[in-house]
Each structure stands twice: as structure tokens, then as C-alpha cells.
Design a binder for these strands. Sequence first.
DNA 1: AGTTGTGTTGAAGA
DNA 2: ATCTTCAACACAAC
Length: 257
Amino acid sequence: MPELPEVETTKKGLEKTKGAFFIDVWTDTPKLIKKPSFSEFKKRIKGKKIKEIRRIGKNIILDLSDDYSLLIHLKMTGSLLYGEVKDKYIHLIFFLNNGSQLALSDVRKFAKVELHKTKELKLDIGPDALKEKLNLKGKKGRIKTVLMDQKTIGGIGNIYSDEILFDSKINPFRKANELNKKELDRLQKSTTKIFKKAVLEKGTSVSDYKTTLGQKGGYAQFLKVYQKDKCPICQTKLKRAKIGGRTAHFCSQCQKL
DNA sequence: AGTTGTGTTGAAGA
DNA sequence: ATCTTCAACACAAC
């Protein structure tokens, strides 16, 4: 579940790698490195210095010396570990000149790692859900799907879309372009509120997600509807429905159509 | 022991 | 164009 708060937490955890140099890299799953080929990747990354850490939506970017950038997407079950790297699902390890290791743990091996020239790195990600205003103009799909569309908004996934819609009392089946001004305003406020809190709590660990120190995020205890049974407001049994292939959790009483 | 569901996203099909 | 389904993979829970 690395969504915005988890990736932001990871980004913060990586700040202390700044200034270090890559000495070597190891993997047992070369296909995690999508470009260039692993052997080329290994050659190029050696000796590069980590200059800056950025997050764009759910992507992590390490800006390196010589105008290169390392792009990492954790997908469903990835986490980046730094320092304490004991974990049975580690498939990629970067060895740094400060004696530490930066490791990718990923049960399902969906994560993506790419090395680009910084100026050739182009991501089609909408306004950041934490820092920028949502813009749903012209979006006709269901609101839950639209919220999770990275080209529209950067950073929202299945868990937080459920939580945001519950907090703003909007039914996930509603069409985005049919929301009134008041509803859009609530949506904006809920998004900001929930993401700020979740970042403070270092994200949500429902199953695999870990911080760079291998710890669980603390937001799970604040979840109200995701994989829950009863509505915390009216006690009605929560509904589950597939929307755009994803399971939506919502309260049919508090989130009326 | 087989089936089902799981956070993401891109590609393929309708 | 826009939407839904599937595949990438491994595991836990039924």
C-alpha cells in the first residue's frame, strides 16, 4: 500500500543518504530494473553521488551526480530499507560508501527501478494530493476512480480514497463532474486532513509496508472504513463493491448517492 | 489442497 | 475516447 503518506515517509527516511556514493549494487531479480539493462545499470550507477531526494506522486526520485536520476516506484508491496536491512524479501541492495546499504524489499516483485538522465525523466502525474489543489474539471468517471487516477491527482490509492470519501461523506459511485461546490470543498479538506495526519503517523501498514527503518506506519489505527466492518458513525454494516476493479469500502447511510 | 483477495499500474481488449 | 479486465508475483486466509 505505498500511497502518498508511505512514499513521503520513505522519502524523508532517505534524506540521510544524501551525500553518499554508490559503490556497488546487487540483485537476485534483475527485471526489477526496467532500464537500462541490469549490467548497464550497475556500470553507470557506480560512483554516482546522491544529491537530492524527491517525491512525485507515489514515485521516489534520487537525483544523482552527472545529471542522472534514479526513479523508484514501490508498486504494491515494495519498501525501501536503509540501515537496518534484515528482511527475507530483499531483492535489490545498493552498497554505499558510508558503510550503509539501501535495500528494496518486495514480496511480489512488482516494484520498478529506472536510471534516467535527469532532464529526460518525465512523469505524467497530476497535482500532488498533499501540497496542491485538486482539479477535477472535466472528469466524468466515478469519483473513487478519478481520485486514484495518477494523471489527475498524484498520490491517492485504494486505502486513502476510501478514507477520504468517507470523511467527506461522498459515495464512491458518484460521478466526479456531478459533485457540487460544497462536496468538492469537503473533498479537498478531507484529502488534506487525512494525508497530513497519515504523514505524521508515517503511513499505514496493513500488510507489507515498512518505513526505511523497517518499522510499521501508525495510521492503521485511524482507518475508519478500509477493511472495516461497521460504520464508526452510524454503526451500519459497511458495504464493499468493486469500482474500476478495486474494492471500495463505504457506508451506504453516511455516503448517500 | 484449491480458491480468493491483496496495496499498483500499464497494456490489452471491448 | 473511455471503460473494464488481466497480468506481473507471492502469500495469507478461508
